[in-house]
Computed example of a mutant assay.
Amino acid sequence: MAKLKTALIIATMAVAVAGCQKKRPETLPPGPGPVDPGPGPGPGGGGEAQPGTAEHFRQNVVSDTINFDFDQYDIDARARQILDSQARWLTTYGNTRITIEGHADERGTREYNLALGDRRANAAKNYLAARGVSPARITTISYGKERPLALGSDEASWAQNRRAVTIVIN
């Protein structure tokens, strides 16, 4: 009797499962065709960014980053070249606001590196202002050693982390 009940339960389950199976349609829908990615970032899709945007800034200046020597915040010849290209771009796009981030390497106390990062960001701001960029368009912030670009405790890493970075806001 127990075997009969078990057989009936199994048969009932088999019928139920068979009724739940999906039937294959006679004709399948077409597969995905070629994907049209649409136009690129700029007019005509040629990879040019929209003028006045952060991406356009990065494409049209020498660099968005200047670097500093150990424990320094003076603007050297290479930094002047970079900041001059930024000043030209910022003069062309007069409504664009920027933030200059000051950074330091891992050596020194947190407080010291925050102050050094602030001096670096303000040195870049003052240079841009001297080149005709309104200081009202520039904000500064110091991250000290809190946001390293390169991880490592060697001169190559430290050199990358001693920097000021210009970020376009709008």
Rank of each mutant, 00 (worst) to 15 (best):
S85H: 06
N95H: 11
I98N: 00
G94N: 12
E101H: 09
Y93S: 07
I66W: 12
A129H: 09
W89V: 03
I98Q: 00
T65G: 14
D76M: 15
Q86G: 03
D71T: 15
G94T: 11
R97S: 08
Q86P: 00
G102L: 04
D118W: 07
T99E: 10
N122T: 12
N126Q: 11
T92W: 05
Y112L: 12
G108F: 04
Y73R: 13
A129M: 07
N122S: 07
N67G: 15
I75D: 10
A129G: 07
A121H: 06
T65N: 14
L114Y: 03
R107P: 04
N113A: 08
R80H: 11
I98D: 02
D84R: 01
A129K: 09
A87Q: 03
R88T: 08
A130G: 15
A79H: 06
A130C: 08
R110Q: 11
E106F: 07
L114N: 04
W89S: 03
L128E: 03
D69N: 12
E101Q: 09
N126W: 08
A87D: 03
I66E: 14
N122G: 05
R78K: 14
G94D: 12
I82Q: 02
I100V: 10
S63W: 12
A77C: 08
T65I: 14
A79L: 09
D71N: 14
L128W: 02
T91A: 15
R78D: 14
R78H: 15
L128S: 04
A123W: 06
D84H: 01
E106I: 07
N122R: 10
F70R: 13
L116R: 00
E111W: 01
T99G: 06
N113Y: 01
I82M: 06
E101F: 06
R107Y: 09
R131N: 11
Q86K: 02
A123L: 08
W89G: 00
A130K: 06
A77E: 14
R119E: 11
N122E: 10
E106Y: 07
E101W: 03
Y93Q: 07
R97W: 05
N95I: 08
H103Q: 05
R97G: 04
T96D: 02
F68P: 12
T99F: 02
K125E: 06
R131E: 10
I75Y: 10
K125Y: 10
N95Y: 15
W89M: 06
Y73K: 15
E111L: 05
N67L: 13
N126F: 10
Y112F: 13
Y112P: 02
